[in-house]
Design a protein around this nucleic acid. Structure first.
Lengths: 235, 235
DNA sequence: GTTCTTATGCCAACACAGTTGACCTTACGC
DNA sequence: GCGTAAGGTCAACTGTGTTGGCATAAGAAC
């Protein structure tokens, strides 16, 4: 049993697995992402991951201290994907909007992975880069540090919170998903108007509305608020 | 094996368990909440629940189709607690604010339970009551149905999203929590300003800011937006 | 009160999970 | 080339949700 996990950049020996493949942290994370997409959030298991990589499950413990540390690495990869190719434009508002939408999109693109990682602080490279980017944009806009931190907090939390919520409903195992649709169809849209008049009235609208994300609208509201702080109008 | 679960209100026979206790859906949910609080989100298992109730784990399947259905019942109980004693005041803005804060608070008060349920649609009694309440408030304010549904969507999703995020960080197992604090202390506050100048500058503020919730501020922003739609100022 | 039925609790077993310690083999530093 | 130890493998441990079969006592019927 590995008491210490050799960090990726320190790895010297690369012994191939029984089947000839040579493992790497990146390859494991990528395979994990594939498993998550294919088998759902509960489908990522050490055993299945070993099967997919054609290695023994215990081999994974040479790369990660446990399944939890693996999920942190997965999360950091997602943030990395969100930031790939991004650069500041000079407009703080455009930059924040783009960053928010990109992060949200990256998570929602891998819902099963997002569920596991949205609420975790990893301290890994890509997460740090993202935080630095947001603070840089806010700082360049002229906002004093104190306010910049407050805005950063609201911005990043709202983005992650919606990413988490939206991902969660996309990531439900098929059975639960069907059950949930069934609830909307059989329960909500057939409530007697005697007991729940407003739900009954709004039922058709609800069915169509609730499938899309409220994040873009909420993000725009937040940006409005920030703008108001920057250029307070005389009241 | 119970192919069909007898719904609580149809239950006639109440056979006491080996230890003399007479079970009920409510008692099971309450015990589950206690276990969640005491042993964390991963500490709620059928076996442990059976141990706490002094009954066989399989007995639980007479009350719930599986652990998943139990978590839905737990979630509905939380919503019920949020609504207990609440009544509309006539001011839509106060009512929405109170509802949002109450729901958020109810979830955050049981973080480990919230993590399991925030993103689920249960269709159970208390959830329906909450939705009807929000729609009633909005409708009474004079908002047309279409807009009321849009606002309802943003409102409920934002509330649940923040509840989920805030709960998640409170619900982390002790080991992960310590690891996370360690990340803030050792990684974030010791980043060289050469590579991450803005994080380095904001580090002390970050450490104090990030522990509190951004929800109240975000909620107020949303209410501002709704108010603007109701009384659009000439542009 | 007695009898009958069946709801409901209990038991034993299943497949699967994460994790660990001991072992073996082979790639690399010297 | 050789010796070392990194890293892959094997087998086993505990704990999980879930299920089918069985026993028993609660409540209905008379």
């Amino acid at each position: 049993m590995p008491k210490v996990v050799v960090p990726e950049e320190k790895r010297r020996r690369r012994r191939p697995t029984r089947s000839g493949k040579v493992l790497s942290e990146q390859m494991i994370v990528d395979t994990a992402l594939r498993l998550l997409r294919e088998h759902g959030a509960a489908g990522l298991t050490a055993r299945r991951l070993g099967l997919a990589l054609d290695c023994d499950p215990s081999t994974l413990y040479r790369y990660f201290r446990g399944m939890d540390e693996l999920t942190l690495a997965i999360g950091d990869t997602l943030i990395g994907q969100a930031l790939q190719g991004w650069g500041p434009t000079g407009s703080w508002r455009d930059d924040l909007r783009t960053l928010g939408l990109r992060i949200h999109a990256a998570y929602v693109a891998h819902p099963q992975a997002a569920v596991l990682t949205t609420s975790r602080v990893t301290g890994r490279a890509n997460e740090l880069a993202a935080d630095e980017a947001v603070l840089t944009v806010l700082s360049a806009s002229g906002l004093p540090v104190r306010q910049a931190v407050a805005v950063y907090h609201a911005f990043i939390d709202q983005t992650l919170a919606f990413a988490s919520l939206d991902a969660a409903s996309l990531a439900l195992p098929n059975a639960a998903l069907l059950a949930e649709e069934e609830v909307w169809r059989s329960t909500y849209s057939r409530l007697p108007s005697a007991t729940h008049p407003h739900i009954a009235e709004a039922a058709p609208l609800l069915a169509t509305q609730m499938v899309s994300s409220a994040f873009p609208a909420a993000l725009e509201l937040l940006l409005d608020g920030v703008a108001a702080r920057m250029h307070p109008r005389p009241s």
